[in-house]
């Protein structure tokens, strides 16, 4: 088994609407894969397909070596899922919630007790284990839900927009808790989100989906490099008007601006900038510092969405 999750041209239609359209990607074991996309882009449907909760219209997928279509139960045995809602029984206490799912996963009494203690201590909820969940904040409920997901030591976990509705502080704490929980367990995480900062911080690989189509897959850095209009800033001396004219005439240059001793050069998308520094040195420029501008994943994502709209 090379991949924890693999899809091959998987599609799901609801009548005339293609919720997921020929989506193919692979997720390496032990990594966090971010599935990015706006609302209604097909993220949740993809999770449901991977968990065997929905049957694909066409294509196939594989989770931990099992086909969700024909071996849905085996897939679910190996996975944990925090879906759109926390799925907590709010009339029950935190302990009862975890105890119920511990029984569902056939953990022994001793194992349940120890595992619940271990997980609740990690998310600072052990002292509140006998409280009814109903009165808890959304952040606390999310932490409890993640503990439930991790209870049976799944090999793959699916998190569907886990920080949606959380304030920035709770989101940040949730991310820390999530990393804390997954880093030591070697679990593979499939995370859907439209929070790009979250994806950038957590994910080794991201896929971007829009209108059911997978637009791009790669690491956050790869995506940023692939789609940005690169900006290179050079600090130094010896920048003449003639030199600026020459740079402007080079291939792949969008604009050149000189401000004090700062030369700001914008390259067209995908242009190679490796020739620039040797060229300037050859022209007699004394270079003190070279800075390459980095677009955030959010900039890249928004650009992608705009491009798709065009």
């Amino acid at each position: 088994m090379d991949y924890a999750i693999q899809t091959k041209k998987i599609s799901k239609s609801f009548g005339q609407i293609k919720a997921v359209d020929q989506v193919s990607f692979e997720v390496q074991p032990g990594t966090i894969f971010g599935f990015l996309g706006p609302n209604g882009s097909g993220k949740t449907t993809t999770i449901r397909l991977l968990l065997g909760l929905l049957e694909p219209t066409e294509g196939s997928s594989n989770v931990m070596g099992f086909d969700p279509l024909s071996e849905g139960q085996k897939v679910r045995e190996n996975c944990g899922a925090l879906l759109e809602h926390t799925g907590l029984y709010e009339r029950l206490t935190a302990l009862e919630n975890l105890d119920f799912y511990g029984r569902v996963w056939h953990l022994s009494s001793e194992e349940r007790k120890n595992r619940i203690k271990e997980l609740l201590e990690k998310v600072d909820l052990y002292n509140r284990r006998d409280e009814i969940v109903k009165g808890w904040s959304r952040g606390m409920k999310q932490k409890l839900a993640v503990s439930r997901v991790m209870l049976h030591r799944p090999k793959v976990i699916f998190l569907d927009e886990p920080t949606a509705g959380l304030d920035p502080v709770a989101s940040s704490a949730f991310r820390d808790d999530l990393l804390n929980l997954v880093q030591h367990s070697g679990v593979t995480v499939f995370l859907t989100t439209h929070n790009l900062t979250e994806a950038e911080k957590l994910c080794q690989q991201v896929g971007v989906i829009k209108n059911g189509k997978l637009i791009m897959v790669g690491s956050p850095d790869e995506l940023k490099l692939l789609k940005r209009s690169a900006v290179t800033e050079i600090v130094g001396s010896g920048f003449t008007d003639g030199l600026i004219t020459s740079i402007n005439q080079l291939r792949g240059i969008e604009s050149v601006v000189l401000q004090d001793h700062h030369l700001r050069i914008t390259f067209t998308e995908g242009a190679d900038s490796s020739f620039l520094v040797p060229f300037l040195v050859q022209q007699g420029v004394l270079i003190e510092e070279v800075r390459k501008g980095k677009a955030s994943l959010e900039d890249v994502f928004l650009t992608m969405m705009e491009e798709e709209n065009d």
Binding site: L53, R76, E77, A81, L82, H85, T86, G87, V104, W105
Partner: peptide
């Protein structure tokens, strides 16, 4: 109460 989908995503038949 939105707990059914989580239950369906478990190993239970």
């Amino acid at each position: 109460r939105n707990t059914l989908e989580t239950l369906l995503a478990s190993r239970l038949s």
